[in-house]
Structures are given as structure tokens and as C-alpha cells.
Simulated assay, not measured.
Amino acid sequence: MGLVPWYDGRDGMYGWVWRHLPGNTWVKALISLALVVAVVYVLFQYVFPWAEPLLPFNDVTVDNQ
């Protein structure tokens, strides 16, 4: 039994990604940073502008009094 009761020997998604990246620790860290930057770029350039009209940000529930 491990130190944490929910740990069952699996690392999850991030452990899987880390194990499958090539190189030593520094190379893996740089590749991971590049992947995070790429995901943030795609989200801000494509996903958020596409989803913005679908979200109710301008629907206010307070009447002008």
C-alpha cells in the first residue's frame, strides 16, 4: 500500500506523456513547455473565438432602474 490511498500504480495522462517524450529531463521539459504554449495558442486563436458567440456573456439579468 502506498502513501496515498488512491494511488494504484498508474501515473495518469501526464505520466504517460512524460514517459513517451524523447530525450533527457531538460529536453522533455522544453518539449512539454512547447506543447503547452501550442495548446494555449490554438485555444486563444481558434477555439475561444469560435465559442464566444455561443456563450451568454452579454445576457444580463439585472434590469436598468
Results as ranks from 00 to 15, higher is better:
Y46S: 04
V47C: 02
P49N: 02
A51K: 07
L21E: 00
G15P: 00
V47Y: 07
L33M: 10
V36M: 13
V62C: 04
V60W: 08
M1F: 11
N64C: 12
W16R: 14
W16T: 14
W26H: 08
F48W: 13
N64Y: 14
W6C: 09
Q65C: 06
P49G: 00
L43K: 07
G12C: 05
E52S: 14
F44N: 07
H20L: 08
V42W: 11
I31T: 06
L54Y: 14
V42I: 15
T25C: 06
V4M: 08
G2Q: 05
V37K: 06
V47Q: 04
Q45K: 12
P49V: 03
E52Q: 15
R10T: 11
L33V: 06
I31G: 00
L54K: 13
P53G: 05
P22N: 03
P56I: 00
V4H: 09
W16I: 03
D11R: 12
A38Q: 04
Q45H: 08
A34T: 09
Y14T: 08
Y14R: 10
K28S: 02
D11Q: 14
G9Q: 05
V47G: 01
V4Y: 08
G15N: 03
D11L: 14
P22S: 02
P56E: 02
D63K: 09
W26S: 13
F57N: 06
V36H: 10
F44D: 03
